[in-house]
């Protein structure tokens, strides 16, 4: 099994890519850049601090502007991870 941090990075990439398809690359990058302790450049993700909090913030960042529909898109995006993230590792807003 991959390291926990890698799994969070994967989740962040999946969400970013899925949101990109809807709002376009530029808007998606701008939204991600507004998330504290997170940097995404291409397929490289850098997280500082608690990854669960960062993932939660990313989802909330999209929700703050695009509403509930964006949360549903994020939820669907991380479904691809399957059982890789345990229930207690998933932030509340993605459950």
């Amino acid at each position: 099994m991959t390291k926990l941090i890698d799994r969070y990075e994967q989740a962040i990439l999946l969400i970013t890519h899925e949101q990109e398809k809807i709002v376009g690359k530029d808007v998606a990058m701008r939204m991600t850049s507004l998330v504290h302790n997170l940097s995404v450049k291409g397929d490289k993700v850098q997280i500082v601090g608690d990854p669960k909090v960062v993932l939660n913030d990313l989802v909330n960042q999209y929700a703050s502007l695009f509403g509930k529909a964006s949360v549903e898109v994020s939820k669907q995006a991380i479904e691809k991870l399957g059982q890789n993230l345990k229930t207690d590792e998933i932030p509340e807003n993605l459950k």
Partner: peptide, 16 residues
């Protein structure tokens, strides 16, 4: 603006 952004998002989601 938030309302417009949400509506645009939903439209784009449907297009996608």
């Amino acid at each position: 603006l938030k309302q417009i952004a949400e509506e645009l998002y939903i439209n784009n989601l449907e297009l996608n």
